[in-house]
């Protein structure tokens, strides 16, 4: 099977067709644009629309009476308790997507096998289980605060948009295991930062038990990050040194 780093027929560069590209470049250099200016016009449009636009959405109201009471009580500790709920929901969405990401990577593993210094199936399964557990930890945390864990909050929505490119990479049947792991690395980096902030918020708001649960999760996520980072690096180094051996 071909590797993406094998020399092939990539036609995207300007050097692929010197005669055609010479024509293209010479004509472009003689361009007389139909309007003067530069890319700053695009910035002006962005600014103008941003000034007139609303926001992507807001937080839902508390889903239960208990939740409403909780919100008031939490309000004693935080000026805006919805911030914590929004961040909890963001992490929840991310862990849910992260669980699915590991399923994608497992399928890639089953189809293509691993490499020396790459993941074992057991490790991927273990991390998958931990992502799922973290989702449940967050679901419980939101429920304990009277919030609806199924609501898509603004931060959860944006986090899902951010992750959408990663899923495209992992689910494309043409991408390799190392390519899928690279996308996973981006996710784990963001995840690690996310837990860090969540622990700080929980601690500051006095949710000590919750902060302890989150520290457990953080330790698992740090382990994920360290491993995924190593797998990606191992593959690149071996590939560069011509030592790559596929081992199913």
């Amino acid at each position: 099977m071909k590797e993406p780093t094998d020399i092939g027929l990539n036609r995207t560069g300007i050097g692929t067709s010197p005669l055609d590209s010479k024509e293209l470049i010479e004509a472009a250099e003689a361009t007389v644009p139909s309007s003067e200016g530069d890319a700053s016009g695009i910035a002006s449009l962005r600014i103008s629309y941003a000034e007139e636009s609303g926001i992507v959405g807001t937080m839902p109201p508390p889903s239960t009476v208990k939740g409403a009471v909780k919100s008031v009580l939490e309000g004693l500790g935080a000026k805006n308790p919805a911030v914590f709920l929004d961040k909890l929901a963001e992490r929840l969405q991310f862990e849910r997507t992260g669980t699915r990401m590991y399923e994608s990577v497992l399928a890639k593993f089953d189809a293509l096998g691993s490499f020396d210094g790459g993941p074992s199936r057991e490790a991927l399964l273990e991390f998958h289980g931990e992502e799922l557990r973290h989702f449940h930890v967050l679901r419980s945390a939101l429920e304990s605060m009277g919030a609806d864990p199924t609501a898509l909050t603004p931060s959860a929505d944006i986090a899902a948009v951010e992750a959408s490119g990663l899923l495209q990479v992992q689910n494309d049947p043409r991408t390799t295991l190392p390519q899928a792991l690279h996308a996973l690395l981006v996710a784990e980096l963001a995840d690690s930062e996310g837990w860090d902030m969540l622990i700080e918020l929980a601690t500051n708001l006095g949710h000590e038990a919750m902060a302890d649960d989150f520290r457990d999760a953080m330790r698992a996520e740090e382990k994920h990050l360290a491993h995924v980072r190593q797998w990606v690096a191992n593959h690149a180094m071996q590939d560069a040194e011509g030592k790559l051996e596929q081992a199913a």
Partner: peptide
């Protein structure tokens, strides 16, 4: 305003982007 004029204001195609 004209979006097409704004987006391509002064634009000259250059290999590897402007």
């Amino acid at each position: 305003g004209s979006p097409s004029q704004t987006v391509a204001a002064g634009y000259v195609y250059t290999p590897g982007t402007e």
